[in-house]
């Protein structure tokens, strides 16, 4: 599971990007992180992935997030895909296999590449891929080590309909296999079907956390989001 306990991230003295955030994504759960632009979602994700220093603690399945053990369990799909320009698709997978010390990874790699229609692009260099293909490769690379916790930051941007369908199916498979999945997205409707818990961030804080079971009849994730974010704005004014 992904466990955040009183996480605060400051830039300099004045700017508070994340303010005392606590949340938990259990194993076998899809957590959605929602919030308007500038709410602090990407910063929080970078903290979880050990890319930013922070106050408070973040643990992945009981390991401190910057430890080797935690990293071996984590998959990260960044907001902007960036691949190595001079490595082919296949070499990216090989590199990940070496970096994560994976054995017998070939079949899984091929499966992922086929699912995301990259199998015929195995010998293309990273720089020859379109943005969407880079995003697909980024997803394949993150999932190759069979992580126990996966963090997706705006994973649907740039993907074609086939890849969106595959990714949604993969998220469900990951959940069903006991993986903790955290997805940050603005495309609320893409998560409407499969979410378990949603955390709505406003101004660096968790403004609300809801379970799917908390929804009243006919209420959608989008309705919940607007009731929290715009309801607060209306209350303020």
């Amino acid at each position: 599971m992904i466990h955040l306990d009183h996480v605060t991230k400051r830039y300099g003295k004045k700017f508070l990007a994340n303010d005392d955030v606590s949340l938990c994504i259990e194993a076998g759960e899809i957590g959605v992180l929602l919030g308007p632009n500038g709410a602090g979602k990407s910063t929080l994700i970078k903290c979880i992935c050990g890319l930013l220093r922070h106050e408070g603690s973040i643990e992945l399945f009981g390991y401190e997030n910057r430890s080797k053990e935690a990293k071996a369990l984590l998959g990260y799909v960044p907001e902007t895909p960036a691949v190595y320009p001079m490595l082919t698709v296949e070499e990216h997978m090989q590199f990940i296999a070496k970096a994560y010390r994976l054995e017998g990874w070939g079949e899984r790699s091929l499966d992922l590449l086929i699912r995301f229609e990259l199998d015929d692009k195995r010998h293309k260099l990273g720089k020859e891929l379109s943005k969407g293909m880079q995003q697909k490769l980024s997803i394949c690379a993150a999932l190759l080590p069979e992580p126990k916790a996966v963090v997706f930051d705006e994973p649907y941007v740039g993907l074609d309909p086939h890849a969106i369908r595959e990714l949604k199916a993969l998220m469900v498979e990951l959940r069903d296999s006991g993986c903790a999945v955290l997805v940050s997205t603005h495309m609320i409707d893409t998560m409407e079907q499969d979410w378990d818990t949603t955390h709505i961030m406003v101004n660096g804080r968790i403004a609300a956390t809801r379970q799917r079971t908390d929804l009243v009849d006919g209420e959608r994730l989008e309705d919940l989001f607007f009731s929290i974010t715009e309801g607060r704005r209306e209350a303020k004014s």
Binding site: E69, A82, V83
Partner: peptide, 14 residues
């Protein structure tokens, strides 16, 4: 470092 290093190396157990 390049963004590819950030996205693929920094989060790895290396």
């Amino acid at each position: 470092f390049a963004m590819s290093d950030v996205n693929l190396l920094f989060v790895s157990p290396l």
